[in-house]
Amino acid sequence: MNRGTVRGRALDVAELPTIVFSHRSLMWWGTLGVMVIEGTVFALAVMAYFYLRSHQATWPLTALPPDLLWGTLNTIVMLASFIPAHLAKRAAEKLNLRGVQVWLVVSTLFGIAFTVIRGFEFSTLNVRWDSNAYGSVVWLLLGLHTTHIVTDLLDTIVLTVLFFTGPLDGKRYVDVSENSFYWYFVVAAWLPIYLVIYWGARTP
């Protein structure tokens, strides 16, 4: 690996690469920092759910548990979206323009799909946010995750457009890689939230 060239008392770094991925990239660390913050918010919201539940004799208070259909379907769609996100990342790390274009478009379609299904999820929660504390915390969890889905979808759309219109340079491949990295996080964060929302209201 290139570590610079010694020229007298100077360390010449002009030959170092500019396009680096994963933990070698400053952007990766920034993305990771944001994930830690948001992961902490999710974890605390889940703790709030169980804190409230632990203080009640019946749960979900007076409401019915949420319908399983849309939430489970969305979980499957999200897990499937790992594939285009991963392929976009792989194409980006090989600086493959065509591959990035294709997989970004597919990722965008997946993003639109789970945003739409999310709408159905809200409508089959069987409780309103202002009915009782159970309703409040369920809407909180689903709402928090939805903001992540929407922002990630917008990011992906912007990147997709940029990859067709330009101006592009090699650094944008790093952005695609980080976008997929963040996508992994949004999907991975959904799994515990799914279990809490849909099964936390069903266990005795």
Partner: peptide
Amino acid sequence: LLIMDRLVATHFYNPGEGGDVLL
């Protein structure tokens, strides 16, 4: 959560509807 309790009538800190001020 506090501002939502105040503005959109959630019940996170309202013991009357299953909430808890100690949260």
